[in-house]
């Protein structure tokens, strides 16, 4: 891992850097598995190695892959970094050892989650019960963060699309699946299963690793695959941009309204116990619903983000083609 990090520093070819970042994400995900954090590994794999790499690729396709030689002296940066590192090393000296059973973090708050969550919430995956019930509000915040990012990307990148150019764009796009016979067929086979797999992850977050967020990312990944192969305009015809914005908003609203309903029925915000007559059933219902909210928002925001990046990229491409045509 360290090797990869240093390689990233040294590399001038942005493309290689992004490739390495993908590897880096995969390594850290494996690391998470070793460290028992399966849910995190799930997410990191989908996000760190998948989505963020893709986004960077699209951007590099627009901006060019070569980095200029570094002209300024990095000594001050080195200094800051060393100070930070020194501080951290200083801090680690008094830390409990990794894996020590008697470390304070394993003694204070966590035991309740581990011992009582089954009785209180009834979901075997403790991460899910903490995420969706004990700290549901953090997760709500997380959903809002991703929603914010989606809106942010929309504001920055969305372009008013002109009708007449669409045909032209689609003609370039579609070339990908025309040329790549093999990919087309394989992808056609795979896509429905990826979708179903996403939904499976969505609904089985209670029992194993996974949940709304991971499901959303996988769902989005399938859509992205489709868009890459069959062209953005085709994908846009299937999944309407306004519609998807609506879904993103609905996801956040769904999540929030679960809280509001519990508030109306006499509990505190996100107190699922009051949602049904039996507290456990209430918890189940609440978690199910908010996971849906998370899934909707994440999937649609990821799709929005990708569509907008890719849309920009096509615009660039088109501009470039026009420029290339003019001199000839």
């Amino acid at each position: 891992m360290v090797i990869v990090a240093f390689a990233i520093i040294r590399m001038k070819d942005l493309f290689a850097v992004v490739m390495l970042l993908g590897i880096y994400g995969l390594i850290s995900a494996s690391f998470f598995i070793v460290m028992d954090a399966v849910d995190v590994a799930f997410t990191e794999a989908a996000v760190g190695a998948g989505i963020s790499t893709l986004l960077m690729l699209v951007v590099i396709a627009m901006t060019g892959r070569k980095e200029k030689a570094n002209r300024h002296k990095p000594f001050s940066a080195l200094f800051i970094v060393l100070v930070t590192g020194g501080l951290l090393i200083y801090g680690t000296l008094d830390m409990p050892h990794i894996g020590a059973v008697d470390a304070p973090i394993h003694k204070h708050v966590a035991p309740r989650y581990i011992n009582d969550s089954m009785a209180e919430i009834g979901v075997p995956n403790i991460v899910t019960s903490v995420l969706a019930s004990y700290r549901a509000f953090d997760t709500f915040g997380e959903v809002v963060v991703i929603f914010t990012a989606g809106i942010g990307v929309l504001t920055l990148l969305s372009v008013a699309r002109r009708k007449e150019s669409e045909e032209e764009i689609s003609s370039i796009n579609d070339s990908m699946h025309e040329q790549h016979l093999v990919i087309r067929i394989v992808a056609k086979m795979l896509i429905p299963f990826i979708f179903l797999f996403a939904l499976y992850v969505q609904f089985h977050g209670d029992f194993g690793p996974g949940g709304g967020f991971q499901a959303g990312v996988i769902f989005a990944a399938a859509t992205i695959l489709y868009a890459m192969l069959f062209g953005l305009s085709t994908a846009r015809k299937v999944i309407n941009q306004t519609f998807i914005q609506l879904i993103a908003a609905i996801g956040v609203l769904l999540y929030g309204s679960v809280g509001i309903v519990s508030l109306m029925s006499g509990g505190n915000f996100f107190d699922y116990n009051v949602l049904a007559s039996d507290p456990i059933a209430g918890q189940h219902l609440g978690i199910l619903l908010i996971e849906w909210g998370v899934g909707c928002t994440v999937a649609s925001v990821m799709i929005i983000i990708f569509f907008n990046f890719a849309g920009r990229q096509e615009l660039h491409q088109q501009k470039e083609r026009v420029q290339n045509q003019e001199p000839s």
């Binding site: 849910d39 995190v40 966590a110 991460v127 995420l131 953090d138 997380e142």
Partner: peptide
Amino acid sequence: PLPHVLILTAIV
């Protein structure tokens, strides 16, 4: 499990 939850959020 708690740090896992936190990091899930942080990844997002």
